[in-house]
């Protein structure tokens, strides 16, 4: 019989990333449905006191692998360390973050544990004791429900920003157990980490995204989107056309061969709405399209459409947003 549900947290630069709490909250629901405790796994350097935070989101007991060698994600090190903790138990499910590192880790861990992984899930349910997970395929053009074979351990990575996160309950205490870290010989290592300190909002975690396409005409014109984004606290994205033109870095590309995003609000500016672009942003809660061509396909997906020259409209819109922000 299964004796627990496991949620794996992501610890970076001294803190848990928010997705860790989303995963813990979701795993708590699964644990409640199955009436088993929720165990957390936290790996990193200096996790120490922070481990208790997982308790605030529903974890009953946290297993901490704390070692300077684990400061950065190295698959060859993280996978055996996490696997050895999971193997102490007979979990009903293991939930992990579908962050950049989380997806990479999940895949290798699934091979290590010889089980099936549902990557980047948006929903998890317990159906008469059986765990099922729903995930987008074809960059969200379709959705798939996954089930596990009898006796197989369900591994589920959860897409950031999608699952409900509990409110932190700082009175909720988790047991914390430090595990002895037995590091294998590794042939790979991290040489360096450069973190962006400009406070740029990450696209996959942004609540609001302002994206520009070929209609922006030049790299320097993106400054008007940057200004709008600043007023809205938004991240700036781009279509492939804008990235291919060298106006924006590839990490800004939204779409089937870029990032799949799911903000509350997506503002597409000078983007026609090619199927590969729509695939990447079609699950946004609200979509606004600004395009001078009333026939642009993006308008078929937009909740609000503006048929205007973007160079006239965006400054006017930014000004109206500024007015709103100054009154509330």
């Amino acid at each position: 019989m299964a004796d627990c549900v496991v949620s794996v947290a992501e610890f970076r630069a001294g803190n848990f990333r928010r997705v860790s709490f989303e995963v813990a909250s979701e795993a708590r629901k699964v644990a409640d449905a199955l009436n088993v405790p929720l165990y957390g796994i936290a790996v990193g350097a200096g996790v120490g006191d922070k481990a208790k935070e997982l308790g605030w989101y529903g974890v009953d007991k946290v297993f901490v692998a704390d070692d300077p060698a684990l400061e950065h994600y190295v698959p060859e090190l993280y996978v055996p360390v996490i696997a050895s903790i999971i193997e102490r138990w007979n979990p009903a499910a293991v939930l992990l973050p579908a962050s950049v590192d989380g997806k990479d880790l999940s895949a290798r861990l699934a091979a290590r544990l010889q089980t099936g992984l549902a990557q980047d899930c948006i929903q998890v349910v317990c159906d008469g004791g059986a765990v099922k997970a729903k995930r987008p395929i074809f960059a969200g053009k379709c959705l798939a429900w996954c089930e596990w074979a009898q006796g197989a351990l369900p591994m589920i990575s959860c897409r950031p920003n999608v699952m409900d996160c509990k409110d932190a309950d700082a009175t909720r205490q988790a047991d914390v157990e430090k595990v002895a870290v037995d590091l294998p010989e590794a042939r790979s290592k991290v040489l360096g980490v450069e973190l962006d300190t400009t406070g740029k909002v990450e696209l996959t975690e942004a609540e609001i995204i302002v994206s520009g396409g070929r209609g922006m005409k030049a790299a320097e014109n993106f400054v008007i989107l940057e200004q709008l984004a600043k007023e809205l606290g938004a991240a700036v994205g781009a279509s492939r056309a804008a990235v291919d033109a060298g106006w924006r870095p590839h990490s800004d590309q939204v779409g089937q061969t870029g990032k799949v995003v799911n903000p509350n609000l997506y503002i597409a500016v000078g983007i026609s709405g090619a199927i590969q672009h729509l695939a990447g942003m079609g699950s946004s809660k609200y979509i606004v399209a600004v395009n001078k061509d009333p026939e642009a396909p993006i308008f078929t997906k937009a909740d609000y459409g503006i048929v205007e020259d973007l160079f006239k409209f965006i400054p006017a819109f930014t000004e109206e947003v500024r007015k709103l922000k100054s009154t509330c």
């Binding site: 950065h72 991290v190 040489l191």
Partner: peptide, 9 residues
């Protein structure tokens, strides 16, 4: 990675 870049070897 989210908000940064890692060099690995």
């Amino acid at each position: 990675i989210e908000g940064g870049k890692v060099t690995m070897h």
